[in-house]
């Protein structure tokens, strides 16, 4: 089966979940990009009367929160934070996970034992609690939050990459590369890794979704970066007014749910498109 970009994109867009997912994610990205242009004053400025319901005032299509801040500005700027945290955290965990999993799977033996015991140890720690602990100790800022999330989510990638490496390293083409004198470094990253990108890509879409949720949860608990308005922050603010003004919670929550759902749909579609054998069954 050919694997050129064109046919891959075609098949991906033909997939119903893929299409819906990518539309939602593109919208979220557009929101993040346009945030500074549409709401140049940022999400923190008090814009008008507090607790205006959505649709009441044309100037505030999503209403205002308890302090009179524009919710629409919050959601748009929040998209920036959520996507940035999600993307960066996923990227870090993929880098750490691939390094651990790749080296472990390729060399096997005691290297594998040591690295996998470390991975096991990381996996036994409840991830959200340890994220709270890291943020609590180091202090809440966007980079620490990204780091905290990456630290708790890389073991999943490591296990996945290790399994793929264990399978691929027995292939004759890997042996052939050793015989032509190629270094282990080039074999791991130049030969084997490109052949296990598919499952990594599929896993990473779910990873981004998880990272966004963890960030929102931290912010909801007030452990987020105090200088950044994220969806979690708005959720946290809306909590006290949940009975009288539930829309304050509902608006960022919908954005969060849609984004996470879209990422999961993309993951499903990628899985089907990148593993055509499953589809044929």
């Amino acid at each position: 089966m050919t694997f050129d970009r064109k046919s891959f994109l075609y098949r991906f867009l033909r997939h119903p979940s893929g299409l819906v997912g990518i539309i939602i994610i593109l919208t979220t990205i557009a929101m993040a990009v346009l945030a500074g242009w549409v709401y140049p004053d940022g999400p923190w400025t008090i814009a008008g009367t507090p607790r205006q319901w959505p649709g009441v005032n044309q100037a505030y299509p999503l209403g205002t929160d308890s302090l009179g801040r524009d919710l629409a500005a919050g959601v748009l700027h929040g998209a920036r934070v959520s996507l940035a945290v999600g993307g960066a955290a996923a990227l870090f965990s993929i880098i750490i996970g691939t390094l651990f999993g790749g080296v472990s799977g390729y060399y096997g033996g005691w290297v594998d034992d040591v690295l996998m015991r470390i991975t096991d140890a990381m996996q036994t720690i409840p991830s959200f609690l340890s994220a709270i602990a890291i943020v609590g100790i180091v202090g809440a800022s966007l980079p620490t939050i990204v780091l905290a999330i990456a630290i708790v989510s890389w073991p999943m990638i490591a296990r996945l990459v290790r399994a793929e490496f264990l399978r691929l390293r027995t292939y004759d083409f890997v042996q052939s590369c050793r015989i032509i004198g190629m270094s282990d470094f080039r074999i791991i990253f130049g030969q084997i890794l490109p052949n296990c990108l598919a499952p990594i890509i599929v896993a990473s879409s779910v990873l981004v979704a998880t990272a966004i949720i963890v960030e929102a949860s931290l912010s909801f608990l007030g452990l987020g970066d105090p200088n950044q308005m994220s969806w979690g922050t708005i959720l946290g603010n809306g909590r006290s007014a949940l009975r009288s003004a539930w829309y304050i919670t509902a608006v960022p929550a919908s954005a969060l749910v849609l984004t996470v759902l879209a990422l999961n749909l993309i993951g499903d579609a990628l899985n089907d498109v990148l593993n055509p054998r499953l589809k044929e069954r």
């Binding site: 694997f3 292939y171 052939s176 015989i179």
Partner: peptide, 16 residues
Amino acid sequence: SVQMVFQDPSGALNPR
């Protein structure tokens, strides 16, 4: 000084 030719010609070549 030494090189090898494998049995399964499809597994011995990186598909990408």
